[in-house]
């Protein structure tokens, strides 16, 4: 079928073509820029620590370990099992400290409080401290992410 009038002029057509081409060119320049700006950072799937360092720890204090670029906190429970946390406040990311006398985690940034199981009990933190899974295999203490979750989803 032949239209009586064309829908756009030759100039509009060519301008559209040129504009689209320029747009695509720009996008192809922007893509590598954006890729470049975000470095790949994945948190570890697991860290392996020598169990010997933690076997004799008491149930009053906590010990720190490195969880990728974040501090990890290991705590021994009364029944001898271990709890591991990412030692980072769920409010706005400050590192928390463990207050032994009060048996609580404290975040100094905006006075956030967690109980000894990492449950948020006071101040602005909206969620409990993030838990990590602890297992002991022979001489290794293995700390893993809980059920496939990614740090980005936090």
């Amino acid at each position: 079928m032949k239209l009586k009038h064309s829908l756009f002029t030759r100039r509009q057509f060519l301008n559209g073509l040129l504009g689209g081409w320029l747009g695509a060119l720009l996008a192809s320049f922007l893509y590598p820029v954006i890729k470049f700006v975000f470095p790949p950072t994945r948190e570890p799937d697991q860290v392996i620590l020598p169990f010997a360092d933690f076997r004799d720890m008491n149930t009053v204090s906590v010990k720190n370990f490195l969880w990728g670029t974040k501090p990890g906190i290991l705590k021994k429970k009364n029944d001898g099992s271990y709890l591991a946390f990412v030692g980072v406040c769920t409010h706005l990311d400050c590192n928390v400290s463990y207050l032994e006398e009060q048996r609580k985690f404290f975040c100094a940034c905006h006075d956030g409080w967690y109980d000894e199981n990492g449950l948020n009990i006071g101040g602005p933190p909206p969620k409990p401290l993030r838990r990590l899974l602890v297992s002991i295999e022979g001489e290794d203490l293995i700390i893993k992410r809980e059920g496939g979750e990614r740090a980005e989803d936090q």
Binding site: N95, S97, H110
Partner: peptide
């Protein structure tokens, strides 16, 4: 120290204090 707990009395520059207090 990237791994150390936040010290007590942290505070941003004065022009962000209103925001800081609001968040608190």
């Amino acid at each position: 120290d990237l791994m150390a707990p936040a010290p007590e009395g942290i505070r941003p520059e004065w022009y962000f204090l209103f925001l800081f207090q609001t968040l608190k």
